[in-house]
């Protein structure tokens, strides 16, 4: 490689950097103008005692130390991770299953697609009423069906062991977005792959395992990352669920005290924005670590049809 070539490479690299930065500049501008101040502020607050109305007072790492001695931080983190683990993955699997069915070129697809998306459009106050009836331990549809086939009939709304599973169950109604996204991904899987596999005598499972799953893996990556970020910040559902049932914040025995709910309460009810900010940054660290973990493994299971 001669010197001229190297200069050429460097020049091209510089040009690519410039063009790249220009393309992402609207986001960069947004970051600098609208996002940086709030983000840095919250970090600064996390090192202070801040009641929201008077200027923050510096306390150093005290808030972070307190986090480790606060059982409710860990309880709420547990409740939240429960939802991530037992909520996110079943919901994604369900969304994929429905998408696979919808992908079979069935008649009336438009109608089905709309139906499966409908629940995400219904306002939460209306949906809550329905939940409360469905989950009613004595008269609810779910327990009625469970009773008929001899399953246990838990007290979904009041038994602290069952409140989170109830929320997971209701969460299936919110899978429309993921279903639609998966469906789109499925429709783009090149058909010739399947035909080639069929010639090789692959069965349905093999085709799914070896063609479908890899082909939609970029969408799965997106769903998993956004799902982790989303469920760990779970807020509205937990709040509404407890409230709709006439329960205090956190639900029976704090079984619905999610991290976001406790954080909200700490900031705006207890007026401890400093401590709440420290909680936020702890959550940030958890989410960040999980995301990096997923991205690092993604090289092994995500395949892009295009480049890079």
């Amino acid at each position: 490689m001669n010197a001229g070539n190297q200069i050429g490479i460097r020049r091209r690299e510089r040009k690519r950097l410039l063009v790249g930065l220009l393309f992402i500049s609207p986001w960069l501008a947004g970051l600098l103008l609208f996002q940086l101040y709030p983000i840095l502020s919250s970090f600064y607050y996390s090192l202070t005692e801040y009641s929201l109305f008077t200027p923050p007072e510096w306390v150093g790492a005290a808030n972070y130390k307190e986090l480790f001695d606060d059982p409710k931080v860990w309880l709420s983190l547990y409740n939240t991770l429960f939802m991530t683990i037992f909520g996110l993955f079943p919901h994604l699997a369900f969304a994929l299953a429905i998408a696979l069915l919808l992908n079979r070129n069935v008649k009336g697809q438009s109608i089905y697609r709309t139906i499966y998306f409908l629940p995400t459009l219904v306002p939460i106050v209306a949906a809550t009423l329905l939940w409360m009836w469905l989950l009613n331990a004595q008269y609810g549809l779910i327990n009625e069906l469970a009773g008929r086939i001899g399953l246990p009939q838990p007290n979904w709304l009041l038994d602290p062991k069952w409140t989170k599973p109830a929320l997971v169950l209701m969460g299936f109604w919110g899978t429309g977005t993921a279903t639609i996204m998966y469906l789109a991904a499925l429709q783009e899987v090149p058909r010739m792959y399947y035909e080639a596999a069929e010639i090789d005598g692959a069965n349905a499972w093999q085709k799914f395992r070896q063609i479908t799953l890899p082909a939609i893996s970029p969408m799965t990556l997106f769903q998993v990352i956004m799902g982790i970020i989303g469920t760990l910040q779970l807020f509205t559902q937990g709040y509404v669920f407890a409230e709709g049932n006439g329960q205090a914040i956190g639900g029976p025995e704090n079984s619905l005290l999610f991290y976001g709910v406790y954080l909200y309460q700490t900031a705006f009810s207890f007026l401890r924005m400093g401590y709440a900010s420290a909680m936020a940054w702890l959550l940030f660290a958890v989410v960040f670590a999980l995301t990096i973990l997923v991205f690092k493994t993604s090289a092994k299971w995500v395949y892009y049809g295009g480049d890079r």
Partner: peptide, 22 residues
């Protein structure tokens, strides 16, 4: 371009801070 992935991670991480504190 150089630094693309780093910036991308930064972008994703801005989603990770709960709205309550910002």
């Amino acid at each position: 371009f150089k630094g693309r992935n780093g910036l991308f991670y930064i972008m994703l991480s801005t989603l990770m801070l709960p709205f309550q504190v910002t």
